[in-house]
């Protein structure tokens, strides 16, 4: 019984959502209710995560563990942001700068590090993978894409050069379309397996 109930709920919900695509006008309120339940659950999970984070840092501070000072900084910043968000609106310039002037540099720095690492790793591609068609093809296609992105290559309209350039530019699109079709088929199969309870990501095993 413990296995059957989750399977029935999961399959019924999935079929209802799927039916909503075909009978949208009739099922829209029910679907909206289900969707908002899901959104509420996700929001609750976020609150639980915040509570766990606060508890972890509080424990570290109480036990005076290593890095307790950083936990103090985190908690003070968190409480201040929550308090300011309750009082100030998002149009407030101080509150916006307080949040974004910390968040944007941190995330941008991570992206910059990623760019540097990718650039340095590209030096090892051939040595690591060898002179294989895949490694050479990867590097050559990356080179061509970068050169096209410079927008330096200009061709005369209705010329052979334009046709050749157009062909090369369409190669990534062709590959991407094949990838998208494969992903769509995979998603369809996974959806059917979940609906027919072959796969149970919601539990039940």
């Amino acid at each position: 019984m413990k296995k059957i109930i989750p399977i029935m709920i999961g399959s019924a919900t999935g079929l209802t959502i799927l039916t909503g695509y075909f009978f949208q006008a009739r099922l829209a309120p029910v679907l909206g209710l289900l969707i908002h339940w899901g959104i509420a659950l996700v929001g609750l999970a976020g609150l639980i995560g915040i509570g766990y984070l606060v508890k972890t840092h509080l424990t570290r501070i109480m036990r005076k563990q290593k890095g307790a000072f950083y936990s103090v900084v985190v908690l003070v910043a968190f409480l201040f942001t929550v308090g300011a968000g309750l009082i100030l609106s998002m149009e407030n310039r101080f509150y916006r700068d307080w949040v974004l002037n910390i968040q944007i540099p941190v995330e941008t720095s991570l992206l910059a590090i990623l760019a540097v690492v990718l650039l340095s790793v590209s030096l090892y591609v051939i040595r690591t993978r060898g002179w294989t068609p895949m490694s050479v093809g990867f590097l050559v296609s990356a080179l061509i894409s970068l050169i096209f992105n410079l927008r330096y290559l200009q061709t005369q309209p209705d010329s052979i050069g334009e046709e050749a350039l157009h062909f090369i530019q369409r190669l990534p699109l062709v590959g991407m379309r094949g990838i998208l079709i494969g992903m769509a088929l995979g998603g369809l199969i996974v959806g059917l397996r979940v609906l027919l309870a072959f796969d149970r990501p919601y539990g039940g095993d």
């Binding site: 650039l119 590209s122 030096l123 591609v125 051939i126 040595r127 050479v136 080179l143 970068l146």
Partner: peptide, 19 residues
């Protein structure tokens, strides 16, 4: 930046560095 990346990729193709 794109030119730098092109140069690095060309170097890695012609003179691969041992990891």
């Amino acid at each position: 930046g794109v030119i730098v990346m092109i140069i690095v990729l060309t170097i890695s193709l012609l003179f691969p560095i041992q990891q």
